[in-house]
């Protein structure tokens, strides 16, 4: 175990962890969301230094949250959206003055629910500037915008199965993944509630699509994680057949994260407690810009990509990761948060 990892036990299982990125300096604060408690919390953290000159995370403020926190996403410097397993989405602001607290600006209550009136978990959300898309176990897609209480659009029966993940491919296009591994591209300019394209996470194995991420600069490059730990890569410009498909983690892939500034670095974490760093070993950045040879296309084929574990496998699921520059955060079901410093990217 490296010296560069530091953990703190926080007395609640962490479902989501997110840096609050700063414009020209490295991030100093972050958010966590918890799950599986009767009342969960969104907590705002900073780092403090003790007498031994060790930095450790310290709570700035905490916000009670009904249901599990299922996603946290910043839409601007201090505004973020949070979704809950009780089918609600909230827009919150981190306020520093006069004292640190969260201010709720909008609340879309129970926008995911079943016909019986029971709440349905809002499983994921994605943002594009001020626009928010949420999906849930009710198979519904809600399009929201930060300033408006009423959803902009609701696609009622978007999927017959629970939706597990969603991503904005571009402003007018979203990709959803469901419990059966069905991936659907939705063109939002189309008024009809039918997907533009449907394809499978895997033709052979029916496993759930649990997470999606797109390349920060080449948004058509999409990676999806499966309930079986597999990673599938598509180049959606060309076709919907995967360009590579890997049996990666031992179990379900919890989150996939491209380094925002250095997209040749990919991070994945898993229910099996693994945390991996995928790096294009050759660092041929020039090549990246060329049209169709992103390194992800060729992972399996020529083995140019190096994959390293950033820590010994945790004995409980790692649920969430986030990176700012060379510092990575992860939250785990062992009720701890970890900071990994000095990652070479």
């Amino acid at each position: 175990m490296g010296e560069n990892i530091q953990g703190s036990f926080v007395s609640e299982k962490i479902s989501k962890i997110r840096w609050k990125h700063e414009d020209f300096t490295e991030a100093k604060t972050f958010l966590t969301g918890s799950w599986d408690n009767p009342v969960n919390k969104i907590t705002y953290w900073t780092f403090e230094t003790n007498e031994d000159n060790e930095t450790y995370p310290a709570v700035i403020s905490s916000h009670a949250f009904l249901g599990d926190v299922t996603e946290l996403k910043f839409i601007s410097k201090d505004f973020f959206v949070a979704s809950s397993s009780l089918g609600s989405v909230r827009l919150l602001q981190i306020q520093e003055n006069p004292y640190a607290q969260f201010k709720e600006h909008m609340s879309w209550d129970f926008i995911h629910n079943f016909k019986t009136g029971d709440y349905a978990s809002c499983t994921a959300l994605s943002t594009f500037e001020q626009d928010i898309v949420s999906v849930g176990e009710d198979g519904r897609i809600n399009l929201l915008t930060a300033r408006q209480k009423k959803p902009v659009r609701t696609i009622e029966n978007a999927d017959s199965c629970s939706l597990y993940c969603v991503d904005f491919l571009r402003h007018s296009e979203i990709l959803t993944g469901n419990l059966r591994g069905h991936m659907k591209v939705w063109d939002l300019r189309n008024d009809q509630d039918i997907p533009a394209t449907t394809f499978m996470l895997s033709e052979q194995l029916k496993t759930e699509a649990v997470s999606i991420a797109h390349h920060p600069t080449q948004r058509h490059i999409v990676v999806a994680g499966g309930g079986d730990g597999s990673l599938t890569v598509w180049d959606l410009r060309h076709n919907t057949y995967p360009i590579s498909q890997l049996n990666a983690h031992a179990r379900s892939v919890s989150e996939i994260l491209f380094h925002p500034d250095r997209p040749e670095n990919l991070f994945t974490c898993s229910v099996s407690g693994e945390l991996w760093h995928w790096n294009n070993a050759q660092k041929t950045k020039m090549k990246l810009d060329s049209i169709d040879s992103h390194w992800l296309n060729t992972i399996g084929a020529n083995g140019k990509v190096s994959v390293v574990s950033l820590c010994t496998a945790m004995h409980k699921p790692i649920n969430s990761i986030d990176i700012d520059r060379s510092t990575l955060l992860f939250g785990c079901d062992n009720e701890a948060i970890y900071v990994v410093k000095d990652i070479i990217v």
Partner: peptide
């Protein structure tokens, strides 16, 4: 804090198997 057993072997490079493309 407890992170894992330092005596445990350092993590091996993960096994990655390319799936036959469909």
């Amino acid at each position: 804090v407890w992170l894992g057993n330092p005596a445990e072997p350092s993590p091996l490079p993960p096994p990655i198997l390319d799936r036959p493309k469909s």
